[in-house]
Design a protein around this nucleic acid. Structure first.
Lengths: 241, 241
DNA sequence: TCAAAAGTGTTTTGTGTACACCCATGC
DNA sequence: GCATGGGTGTACACAAAACACTTTTGA
């Protein structure tokens, strides 16, 4: 986090742990995208010497007059140019030594964006999309944060119509299935997948077909307008007996 | 939170929101217990004038050299005398005006304790157990935090053997069922409940029976020693097709 | 005519749910 | 002997999983 707050080397800005009440709060955004049949995450090269060569999540310190979510939306807007983005808090990470400059507690969010969105503008050529499965080591505890957010995403997509935030407005069932497969890391049976999706009643046939595909084109669908892209808060859930 | 950090009236300690980087971090613990067939939560009367008469969760500011979980365990130890307690982070709450004294971001945890535990010592007669279902209004945003933690607990108990932290070491199946019913707020069928629990293979017959009950005594069980009371992190979960 | 994916149904298996009776104990 | 809860099994409905063939299109 805090990539553009002027932190350069941690040693310079080392904050004494003895100083009472000197805790900074940041938000870190795990920005997921989907492209070339892979789930990707938007990362930046860390500007801290301690982590030279390593990638880090996009984050920043939270301003005292700023809501946590506002800070996350601000980061998303600054980094991607996008406004109306799916965002969900995952949890806080607060290990004492997670940040070499001092005590920084971070609140992790994940967000889902459509990589092909026409408004997407990466503000900085240090920003890159990385396939989630290829990522080994990251700055800070960001690998842990990424893994935690991915797990949360995997849970969410089973119950809530959130993956559509990763796709263009119109998509085929094959695209949707490949997206589920890349998030879950498993292969799914086509017939069972289609049956299950149609039971959820999330989709609306837009009456168009795929174009420029080297095979039989599939129908295109979009999310039903009655379906919120934001999750509805879960109820107690199925009862055990 | 911050009940015993010397905050008395918020106005006195009002921190300007314009002051850059003056954010405090607290943890708040939703301490669940189970007694008299009701799920209860341990609360304290708020010592802030703004919330006079209202109850609040147990919390405190996080020290700069203290891990978030350590702070939660410290609160639990201070308030209940208990050491080895089930604790799980839920999420952060960071609305700008959630605390009248200034910007305080809090990380919410829930914990599960056995009210009948012989080591339980409530340090303060301002502390009281309240039936979760009777709670209407609380100080700060603590009702929201409580509701969020209760939802999380309801999800957890369906998959993980965590409720046993709320019970004495030995318990009957009826006790266990009543506990599930009080957490979920529903009635369960006895035969189905027993079938489902036995499928989970969490329990071990201790070879003893209930005593001093005015009816046929039931068998007593305990959690299998191979079952961790702490949750095992979930995998991707059942795959959709 | 071939390659590639679209589209489609049935069977089996497991899980959730509804439901009723006899049994053991304390009083 | 009565009240209370203990303990058990079966039938139905629905969801999940396994599985194969024909159709459509572009090259």
């Amino acid at each position: 986090m805090a990539q553009h707050t002027g932190l350069k080397t941690a040693a310079i800005e080392k904050i004494s742990h003895l100083e009472y009440f000197n805790i900074a709060v940041s938000v870190d955004c795990v920005i997921f995208g989907y492209d070339e049949k892979e789930l990707k995450v938007l990362l930046i090269k860390s500007d801290l010497e301690e982590f030279s060569g390593l990638d880090s999540l996009l984050g920043d310190l939270v301003r005292p007059d700023e809501h946590l979510e506002t800070a996350s939306y601000r980061i998303l807007k600054e980094r991607t140019g996008l406004d109306d983005v799916y965002l969900e808090q995952v949890q806080a990470f607060g290990s004492i030594n997670r940040h070499p400059s001092g005590r920084v507690i971070t609140i992790a969010y994940y967000s889902l964006i459509d990589i092909s969105h026409h408004k997407l503008r990466l503000d900085n050529n240090e920003l890159n999309w990385h396939p989630v499965n290829d990522i080994r080591k990251m700055a800070f505890d960001h690998k842990l944060i990424l893994d935690t957010c991915l797990k949360r995403l995997q849970q969410q997509i089973m119950n809530q119509p959130v993956v559509f935030n990763l796709l263009p407005e119109k998509f085929s069932l094959r695209q949707l299935q490949e997206l589920y497969e890349s998030i879950l890391g498993v292969e799914l049976d086509r017939r069972n997948f289609r049956k299950k999706i149609s039971l959820k009643d999330w989709l609306q046939d837009v009456g168009e077909m795929e174009e420029d595909v080297p095979h039989r084109p599939g129908k295109l669908y979009k999310l039903k307008t009655s379906q919120p892209k934001k999750p509805v808060r879960k109820k107690a859930g199925a009862v055990s007996a």
